[in-house]
């Protein structure tokens, strides 16, 4: 998947109230909408598009968007 396409999916999962832009270096923990509810949306999104089912443990390790992409697998991105 193209990275830009992935960022769009991630934005859909986060459903930010105000427009925000995401890139690899965005720290997800600083995104207001990143909480226990949107984590479910992210799990669903990675399951649907990558066949990767993230666990609660995985989310303890997630910091930036890049760290989430690393968990999904570098080979999944163009």
């Amino acid at each position: 998947m193209k990275k830009t396409e992935f960022f769009e999916h991630l934005l859909e999962a986060l459903e930010p109230e105000e427009e925000i832009s995401l890139d690899q270096d965005t720290d997800l923990r600083e995104v207001e909408e990143y909480d226990s509810l949107t984590v479910l949306s992210i799990i669903a999104m990675t399951d649907e598009h990558f066949g990767v089912t993230l666990s609660a443990q995985d989310f303890k390790e997630i910091t930036t968007v890049q760290s989430l992409m690393d968990l999904i697998g570098a080979d999944q991105f163009e």
Binding site: L37, V39, L40, I43, A44, S55, A56
Partner: peptide, 12 residues
Amino acid sequence: MNGAEVFNFTIR
């Protein structure tokens, strides 16, 4: 309840 864990299990 750990919602993420329950969801992970459910879809698996």
